[in-house]
Simulated scan of single mutants.
Amino acid sequence: MVLRLLIILALLLPVACTPVADVKKDASVHETLGFSYLQEGNPTKALKEFLLAVEDDPENPDVRSGLAQAYHRKKAFELAEGQYLKALEYSHGDPKVRNNLGALYLDMRRWEDALRHFRLAADNLLFGSPEVARTGMAVAQIKLGKYADAVESCQRALQIDPQYPQARLYLGEAYDALDKPELAIVEYRKAVAFVPNYLEAHYRLGMSYMRQKKMKEARDEFDKVVNIAPESDRGRLAGQYLKLLK
């Protein structure tokens, strides 16, 4: 029995004596690989790396945030929410994490929760991209039917970055909802001026032109949508509109 205990202890000693720094170094390697896989568009491999990283460094907010992003991209929304909340706890309310949590709540159709977290991120003076959070607020406000508030949120985003195309897009959508198509067209055109292949902006611009009975301009925009992404949902819809507008 003593011999068996000695063997067991001998086997355990290397683990018990592993320096904490080495464990965290391993976690850092897995974290780096995880974010690399996310950038490559491979959330499955990213998930495997972040799960390994979180075993070694469970209170690291960046690891928790990366794990949340991997779950989010795989549409495991409840799991993503849990990891974002842990990242918020361990980071003491990092506004980048709040912004990403707001984006998750948009995907979960929890508009009020999304609006709350985007607002907290936008109002945090340490957040480096408040225009992103302001635009997220606008998306939630549009979903809630608060179109005038959405206009204000987009305008505040554009005060920070006048060339932020997503803010132009959702400002246009808010104007469309307020029955101000001329103003919407101005914003969509600015969005595609900044990002020429902005699929959604071209599609919305085509729809606005069609409502204004400007059929040639509508055809031009729908044609661009088809050329950019013919197999996408927007591409197929644009193709159908092109057939109707012939």
Rank of each mutant, 00 (worst) to 15 (best):
V2P: 01
V2Q: 13
L6P: 00
I7Q: 07
L12Y: 01
L13D: 00
L13I: 01
C17I: 04
P19K: 06
A21S: 09
A21D: 03
K24H: 11
S28I: 03
E31L: 15
F35R: 07
F35E: 04
S36V: 01
Q39I: 05
E40D: 13
G41E: 07
N42I: 12
L47D: 03
A53R: 03
E55T: 05
N60C: 07
D62R: 12
S65V: 02
Y71A: 06
A76I: 09
E78D: 14
G82N: 12
Y84P: 08
E89I: 04
P95I: 07
R98V: 08
N100P: 10
A103D: 05
R110Q: 15
W111S: 10
L115T: 00
H117S: 00
A122W: 11
N124W: 03
E131D: 11
V132M: 07
M137T: 06
V139F: 10
V139P: 04
V139K: 13
V139Y: 11
K143F: 02
L144A: 08
L144M: 15
K146P: 03
D149R: 10
A157M: 07
Q159C: 08
I160T: 12
P162M: 08
R168H: 15
L169E: 04
G172V: 04
D176H: 01
A177S: 13
E187K: 02
F194A: 13
V195R: 14
N197S: 07
Y198A: 06
L199H: 09
A201G: 06
R204K: 14
Y209R: 00
M210C: 05
M215V: 09
E217T: 01
A218I: 06
A218F: 04
A218Q: 05
D223A: 14
V225Y: 05
V225G: 05
I228W: 10
A229Y: 07
S232E: 01
R234H: 09
L237E: 13
L244T: 14
L244I: 12
